[in-house]
Each structure stands twice: as structure tokens, then as C-alpha cells.
Computed example of a mutant assay.
Amino acid sequence: MATVWDAAEVKSTGRSSRQSAHVALPATKTGAPRVRRRLGPGPAIPFGLQIGPALLVLLWVGGSALGLIDPRILSAPWTVVEAFGRLIEQGRLQDNFVTSASRALIGLSIGLVIGTLLAVIAGLSRIGEALIDGPIQIKRAIPTLALIPLLILWFGIGEGMKVTTIVLAVIIPIYIHTHNALRSIDSRYVELAETLRMSQKDFILQVVLPGALPGFLLGLRFAVTLCWVSLVVVEQINATSGLGYMIDLARTYGQTDVILVGLVVYVLLGLVSDGLVRLLERRVLTWRRTLAN
């Protein structure tokens, strides 16, 4: 028997047949309309993103307080807080933090400049793309951390190897997302620039760079994350300073509380740096929201 829509419900609600189709399903054999089940995650939960981490901390506190967690495997939260204060009092945490932050900042800055220049050259020139895109894709297929043995042979185990590792990790996301944004610039803007007879310099400054900015900022978020990941690894390879060195030294002596302090600092650095990039993105890309409105 053919199904029919419940016309009475449509008439009582005052909605059109097209609108009601999103609310009611075809009538069943008994004549009663079936209720549509909404797909998706449902309404947003206040502070939903904080529930998971808070639950993990509560389990950690409860397990430590009840003796369910061996302190030799995972130190209690209050022990980690004590270790945090002790490291600050001794000055070890500040010194290692400054060293790590300096390495990350230098590597990130160099990687941003190189990645952006390569993306602009490849994005504006077919010859540049033919020369640059291939090697970049090859590097993309090779994990940066897999190159560490080769980098040690080339640069030794000093600062040069550590900074170079971070630079190589940062270049890829910056290049990929910026290059993709350049290739995705609306052709109408290019035609308008040609109509206005803009110079090459004005074209790059007023059309190319603003058009590539969203992709660059997206690549910057990935680059910051990879920067910290690379830093953690290289600082545990024959280093004598830095947060990674502090963590590796604590592993040698079985100091899980110090290890957790270092991990917490890394987490905070990652969250803060990502938050700064997102804040920069909101401030710089205000023109997109203006156009959307």
C-alpha cells in the first residue's frame, strides 16, 4: 500500500510540505506517523572539551589516593606538584625551558621563512613548481625523525643537528598548505589584477599573499605542533640541556615525577602556542567574516 504524508500535522503546524518532510516520516500501516531520528552528535555540551581531561585527572587522583596506582609507575599528582616546585626552586626548570624555547623558536622561524618562500615560488611559477614540488613531496614521504641518523653524520650532535631537524619538520606543512592556497586563489581576482594592470609586486602584495594567508595560518598550526614533537626527540639524543634532556635524565634515575613535570610543560607549550596561532588567525582574517556577512 502506498505511503502518505500526515497532512493533518502539516496543516496544524502551518509548515509547507517541503519543511514537514524534515520532521515527519511516511505514515505506518496503522496510520500513525513515525518520528524522524536526528543524525549527528546532538547539541553542544558546555565545557565539553574539558570533560575528558578532567575525568582523567580525577581517575589519576582517585587511583593514587586509594593506592591503586603504583607510584613507581605513575607518581601521584601531589608528588608531581612538589617536584614542580622543587625544580623551579633549583632553577633547573627555567634553564631547560629557556634552552628548549630558544631551539624551537629558531627552528620554527627558519622553517617558516624557507617554507613560505618555496611555496610562493612554486605557486607563482610552473618552472618553480617543477623544480621544488617534487623534492618537497619526497621529503613529505620521509618522516623527519628518520633523517636524524643522517643529520648526526652531517652536523654532529650539537645545536646544528637539533635546529635542522626542527626546520625540516616545519617546512613541509607550511609549504603544502600555502602552496595549495596559492593554487586555489579565485581566478576572478587574477583577471581583475590584469584589468587594473597591476605590477608584479602589487599583485603579490595585494592579491597573492592575502589569498594565501588562510592556508599559511593553517599550515602554521601544524608546523607548531611538529616543532614541539621534533624538539622532544632531538633533546633526548646526547643533549646536555633542555626539557627533553631533563626528562631523559629523570628516566635514568627512575624519577617519574620529574618526567611528568616535563610532559606537563610540553603540553602547556603546545596548547599555548596553538592558542596564539588561532588568536592570530581570528585577528588577521577578520576581513573574511566581514565579506561573509
Rank of each mutant, 00 (worst) to 15 (best):
A193I: 05
T116N: 07
T178H: 10
T116K: 05
R126N: 09
S125T: 13
I176D: 06
R183E: 09
A250I: 01
A169I: 03
Q206M: 06
R140C: 10
L196F: 12
V208S: 00
A181V: 10
H177M: 14
G123D: 13
T240N: 12
T165Y: 10
S109L: 11
V190A: 09
D186Y: 09
G244K: 05
M161E: 12
L117Q: 15
G160D: 15
E191M: 11
N180P: 04
P143D: 08
L226E: 09
D186F: 05
N180Q: 14
L151W: 14
T116V: 10
I138W: 03
L124V: 07
F155H: 05
T178G: 03
L217M: 02
W228L: 12
C227M: 04
L124G: 05
A119Y: 10
V234Y: 13
L213G: 07
S230L: 04
W154Q: 11
T240I: 08
I237T: 08
V170M: 00
I174L: 13
Q200I: 05
V224M: 14
Q137E: 14
T178Q: 15
I121Q: 07
I148C: 12
G134P: 03
K139G: 04
G215D: 06
I148Q: 13
G134I: 11
L217G: 00
G123F: 12
A193Q: 03
I185C: 01
A212M: 13
L213N: 02
T195L: 15
G211I: 00
V207E: 01
R140F: 13
A239G: 08
C227G: 13
L182S: 00
V207S: 06
I114F: 01
R221V: 08
A119P: 11
L249T: 08
R251M: 10
F216V: 02
G156A: 00
V233N: 05
K201F: 08
V120N: 04
I157P: 12
G219V: 03
P210I: 07
A193R: 01
M161Y: 06
G215P: 04
V208R: 02
F216I: 03
E194K: 13
I185W: 04
G160E: 15
L213H: 10
T144A: 09
G115F: 07
G242M: 01
E129M: 02
R188S: 09
G115Q: 01
L205N: 07
V113Y: 06
V233F: 09
F222L: 14
E159L: 10
I148E: 00
A141C: 15
V233E: 07
G160C: 08
W154M: 15
S241T: 05
I110Y: 03
G219D: 03
V163E: 06
K201C: 02
L151A: 14
Q200F: 06
G115R: 03
L150N: 01
D248C: 04
E235F: 11
V234R: 04
E129L: 00
P173S: 09
L192E: 11
K201N: 04
G128M: 08
F222G: 11
I114K: 10
I204G: 02
R221C: 05
T165G: 10
I152T: 10
A212L: 12
